[in-house]
């Protein structure tokens, strides 16, 4: 464990907390893409499919359970309790292409042709693009509540911090996973525009509005 990775994981936890706090405090899921949330549920279930069968550490065990449970809870809240506050007319990204593309990428780029490795690779590729419906929705709306953009920012920081973590592990641990690294860089690039607008507007105390 190094500080980049710990920071990334903590940013991930913070993002989940912000999202659930926003939905329950406002009693509204307005501005949040349920499609992105469904994709994250798929990502965590496939990534952590061995959570009960392979022990790494108490830290990873607890975090995995938190990520799986909170993503399902978020989808459940959006689909049931706050269904009427959703924006299906602007949450129109075709996620079948993201899922299909991730299946193809996992079939080509994987560490081993076993079920667990294929679903692991699938989860990595799917995670790299899972934010797209949310960013697409933001673009269609043109502006968003600050709490929503803080959520997206914290989530983006999570994978961005994994990049120096991989550099660190490559230098000091002789560890390198090309699939996680390439997908992680793609994921961070997808956020780059968003990060730029976030910095230009929100950090300077303005409303998040797309130029």
């Amino acid at each position: 464990m190094n500080l980049f990775r710990l920071g990334g994981d903590l940013a991930h936890l913070v993002s989940i907390f912000i999202l659930l706090q926003k939905i329950t405090a406002n009693k509204s899921a307005a501005g949040i893409s349920i499609k992105t949330q469904i994709l994250y549920s798929i990502v965590y279930v496939t990534r952590y499919i061995d959570v009960f069968t392979k022990w790494i550490s108490l830290y990873t065990f607890v975090m995995k359970l938190i990520f799986i449970a909170s993503s399902f809870y978020t989808v459940w809240l959006m689909h049931n309790t706050y269904k009427s506050t959703q924006n299906p007319q602007i949450d129109t990204f075709k996620i079948r292409y993201l899922i299909g593309g991730s299946i193809i990428m996992a079939a080509i780029f994987n560490h081993k042709l076993t079920f667990n490795e294929l679903v692991w690779s699938f989860s990595i590729w799917l995670e790299s693009v899972a934010i797209l419906p949310q960013l697409f929705m933001l673009q269609r709306t043109g502006e968003a509540e600050n709490i929503t953009v803080h959520y997206i920012f914290a989530l983006g920081i999570y994978r961005a911090l994994y990049i120096p973590n991989w550099v660190y592990r490559w230098i000091f641990d002789q560890y390198f996973d090309y699939i996680a690294t390439v997908a992680g860089i793609i994921q961070t690039l997808i956020y780059s525009d968003f990060f730029y607008v976030y910095y230009q507007r929100v950090m300077k105390g303005k409303k998040f509005e797309l130029p």
Binding site: R47, I56, T60, M63, A180
Partner: peptide, 10 residues
């Protein structure tokens, strides 16, 4: 004897 792949990251 293949090396088992361990994914220790989240």
């Amino acid at each position: 004897d293949e090396v088992e792949i361990i994914h220790d990251e989240l």
